[in-house]
Write a protein that binds this DNA or RNA. Structure first.
Lengths: 146, 146
DNA sequence: CTTGCCTCTATAGTCACTGTAGACTGTAGA
DNA sequence: TCTACAGTCTACAGTGACTATAGAGGCAAG
């Protein structure tokens, strides 16, 4: 259980050194002890927290949500429903993105299927890109994040 | 068919004024004529191109792909297969993201379903976030973009 | 002529990191 | 002990695809 340097922590948790320092800088990670020469020294709790963050990020939780979850972790007696609702929110977001992506998939498939080769000039894919009319039912919302 | 100002173009194509100027700055849009006082003046071709860009972006095509597609548009006699392959690539990307999102959905669903209320301390959702082991089969790739 | 919106340029901010520069530290082999 | 060389430090710039802001000037209606 000796303290480890940032490089070891990085490997242990699968998070890049620079990213760990970044997490520290935005207050997600808390300042670690330092060696005499100023190198960061971490205990096991750091590995845990870092893995927690990474896992949450892998699941697509936005930074704010991760921050909240970490905060909640420090209040073990608090009711679990807050955690639940963050997770449900995330699930809802994921489902929304899924729907959007499915719509995209359908349209792309249609576009590609309609192409019969030939010149760019009368390419159906190009035509489809030009005419927004015959498309996606007013899905005006841009798709971003993940 | 009079030339229009950037504001009108913005409304016509559904792209923000600042975004139009941004597209110009990165060479996606080409420099328009200017009025005596220096205001940008656009013709119908601009509306078309801008709609094209917007539609492609809505479909999730990355900027580079959009650039290529625009380039191809200027070579109407070129073979259409390049267009096709860009679209297929995009479809493949969309499908990949779909798969990743489906995996996320499954895990989130599982996490949430396992929660039985109570305190944060023994919340299953938290537990799931802590233990990366019982999770996503090595889907180490981070999910980004869209 | 004034009001109020539109447009201009240039610059900084966003998110979640990643990369770089230049200096210092720690360790393993010769 | 000397020498490599990998690891670490800080601070700052860069990424993509925009968005926001500041401060100045333009244009049309009332």
């Amino acid at each position: 259980m000796k303290p480890m340097t940032i490089g070891r922590l990085s490997k242990a948790a699968g998070v890049k050194v620079t990213t760990i320092r970044y997490y520290e800088s935005i207050g997600l990670m808390g300042e670690p002890d330092r060696s005499e020469s100023g190198q960061r020294l971490y205990g096991n709790d750091a590995t845990q927290r870092l893995s927690f963050i990474r896992h949450a990020r892998d699941l697509g939780f936005p930074m704010d949500a991760v921050r909240s979850l970490i905060q909640l972790q420090t209040e073990p007696n608090h009711d679990c429903s807050a955690v639940d609702s963050i997770a449900r929110q995330q699930l809802a977001d994921v489902r929304k993105r899924l729907n959007q992506l499915e719509a995209l998939e359908a349209e792309l498939k249609r576009m590609i299927a309609s192409c019969e080769g030939g010149k760019v000039d009368n390419c159906r894919v190009m035509a489809a890109l030009n005419d927004h009319n015959e498309c996606l039912n007013d899905q005006h919302e841009r798709i971003h994040a993940m």
